[in-house]
């Protein structure tokens, strides 16, 4: 264990006009994660606020910026930042207090694309799915809703109405699911200006995603789907079926 310095962005809405960085001493070895360090600091200063739960990259609640890059605190280690380390709240979201951000806009975007199986078929037989059918969407089903991709996305920063990486990846995931019949209900969201079309394939979302979902690929596959949908709509409205 050696003692080292870390910076943490602090913001107390009852006192501060805006966030500022404060430095703290923590004891760290090779296994000390950013989350461990935050918990040590909380021992020194119980007013420090941050979210966490599972400590194993499953719950998706411990997202923070580490040196300006979105990371899961529990999966990021101090040993990888020998020089300096500054922890700040996730970018592109409003800070409530210290490292806690308001995730409400993210959750609204998620629910807007109906991320659940839509299938009103009355059937008593189970929906059998082959391994090939599972493989089509499995990668996009690994999302833990951590929101890191929204902090990585300049298009979301520029336009908060953009549905964003995780939501569009999830829409793609359900559209690809052989048990789902809801694609027609989701396409209008994808087809919109604030749907897939705000994306310019910056690609940093896929870079920071802790679950290798590759939301950028999902969005751009969504563009292909949206283009097909447009062609279909032309045929439909001209009466050809």
């Amino acid at each position: 264990m050696t003692s080292r310095n870390i910076g943490i962005m602090r913001y107390n809405p009852e006192q501060d006009k805006k966030p500022h960085t404060e430095s703290y001493q923590v004891e760290a070895d090779d296994n000390t994660s950013v989350l461990d360090a935050l918990q040590q600091v909380q021992q020194q200063d119980p007013s420090l606020s941050f979210r966490w739960s599972c400590r194993m990259a499953i719950c998706g609640s411990c997202g923070v910026m580490v040196n300006s890059v979105p990371k899961l605190g529990c999966q990021t280690f101090l040993r990888d930042y020998p020089d300096s380390l500054v922890i700040s709240p996730l970018s592109n979201f409003a800070v409530e207090k210290d490292l806690i951000v308001d995730m409400e806009p993210f959750l609204e975007h998620l629910s807007a694309i109906k991320p659940w199986l839509i299938n009103s078929e009355q059937s008593t037989v189970p929906h059998v799915q082959t391994p090939q059918q599972l493989a089509r969407y499995q990668q996009f089903a690994n999302c833990i809703n951590c929101g890191l991709c929204y902090s990585a996305c300049p298009q979301f920063g520029l336009n908060p109405e953009f549905r964003g990486p995780a939501a569009l990846a999830l829409a793609h995931r359900y559209n690809l699911d052989s048990r789902d019949l809801g694609k027609a209900e989701r396409m209008p969201q994808l087809n919109a200006k604030d749907g897939v079309w705000t994306c310019t394939f910056v690609g940093f979302c896929s870079e920071v995603c802790p679950k290798k979902v590759d939301p950028a690929a999902a969005i751009n596959q969504g563009k292909v789907e949206s283009a097909k949908d447009m062609i279909l709509s032309v045929f439909k409205s001209s009466g050809v079926r």
């Binding site: 009852e14 300006s68 592109n92 409003a94 800070v95 300049p154 910056v202 870079e207």
Partner: peptide
Amino acid sequence: RRPYLPAFRRDWWLQLRFYQLY
């Protein structure tokens, strides 16, 4: 409650190498 959301920085693309390459 006084959520703080700074304006999106104009020079965002200079901040990370990944954005510079973009």
